[in-house]
């Protein structure tokens, strides 16, 4: 029952987040904005269309979006949603698999981009992996800090029950949330790291790689991007709301938290300017430093 609910949330709700983000951004700009369900309409439109393939591409290009979405869905199976819905496929050590599934998804997208043979897409791929390589230490240091605090290596046990967060690890958890939020923004190519709406050649990062995908392939790309935002958001939300409650209350709390997360992302996108390209690594290093400091504090509390 809980596994079914988990699966339903994982499959159906992610496209809602970009809708909320866009509504918030529109509100900041004084517009009404597209419907919250816009991404569902877009996906439905795209899957009914045919796909166009360049003669330069091979099966790698066609496999890219599918592998990305598959990797992200499996990663979603490892992650608990809130405190009430444990990951259906959770096992000890799944945090490492989770991080590498995100990496595998990105790898497939990058390969597909390179497979087109376009130098422009190659440039985007190069930028994407550069920033991802810097975001990964921050993610792993955050995971290590959490693992130390909870004494476990599984997302489900790490994020379930009454978390010891706010009394003994308070500032450390605040820093972890900050670091993971930055990682979530960077991994999902949101402002201030990358603008998902821009199509200016000089500054595009993630969007460059998916220019050649069309129809159902592009639908998979968009769907995968929304799942990624949802998964990283789910970790941040659970850390920010470390309460223990009954299962329905947990689910309600989690969904409300995700909506607030999307609103915060929207507010960040509306109020921050995009960073200059050479400033991005610095901010990602700062996120890693945040996570490292949090780990140091947790280490002292756990052993001392």
């Amino acid at each position: 029952m809980r596994a079914a609910l988990h699966l339903a949330i994982l499959l159906l709700l992610p496209p809602l987040l970009p809708g909320i983000v866009n509504r918030v951004k529109a509100a900041f700009a004084g517009r009404r904005g597209p419907p919250v369900l816009q991404l569902y309409f877009d996906l439905w439109k795209l899957v009914r269309k045919g796909a166009v393939y360049s003669t330069a591409t091979t099966w790698i290009f066609r496999a890219g979006p599918v592998v990305t979405v598959a990797a992200l869905l499996v990663a979603g199976l490892l992650l608990p949603f809130g405190g009430g819905l444990p990951g259906p496929a959770a096992f000890a050590g799944d945090v490492v698999l989770f991080a590498y599934l995100l990496g595998a998804g990105r790898f497939a997208t990058v390969l597909a981009a390179l497979d087109t043979g376009s130098s422009f897409e190659g440039m985007g791929a190069s930028r994407e992996v550069t920033f991802a390589a810097l975001a990964e230490p921050a993610l792993f240091l955050s995971i290590a800090g959490l693992a130390l605090a909870r004494g476990t290596l599984s997302w489900t046990t790490m994020l379930s029950g009454q978390m010891p967060a706010w009394h003994s690890f308070g500032p450390a958890f605040a820093m972890l949330i900050g670091a993971l939020f930055l990682v979530a923004l960077a991994e999902n190519s949101r402002i201030p790291f990358d603008d998902p709406n821009t199509h200016l050649e000089l500054t595009m990062v993630h969007e460059v790689m998916v220019l050649d995908h069309s129809g159902p392939d592009f639908a998979f790309i968009l769907y995968g991007a929304s799942i990624k935002l949802f998964l990283l958001g789910a970790i941040v939300v659970r850390l920010a709301l470390p309460f223990a409650a009954s299962i329905p209350a947990h689910v309600a709390l989690f969904l409300a938290g995700m909506i607030v997360f999307a609103v915060i992302v929207g507010v960040v996108e509306s109020t921050f300017a995009r960073l200059r390209m050479n400033r991005i690594p610095q901010i990602l290093v700062a996120a890693g430093v945040f996570a490292a400091l949090a780990m140091a504090v947790i280490l002292i509390r756990v052993n001392g």
Binding site: W166, H167, G170, P171, A172, A286, L293, R301
Partner: peptide, 18 residues
């Protein structure tokens, strides 16, 4: 029992330094 406000002040000082 640890003092949360003291922790926050110390961590803030550390973060601003970094």
């Amino acid at each position: 029992m640890t003092n949360v406000a003291l922790d926050i002040a110390l961590i803030l000082a550390l973060l601003l330094g970094v």
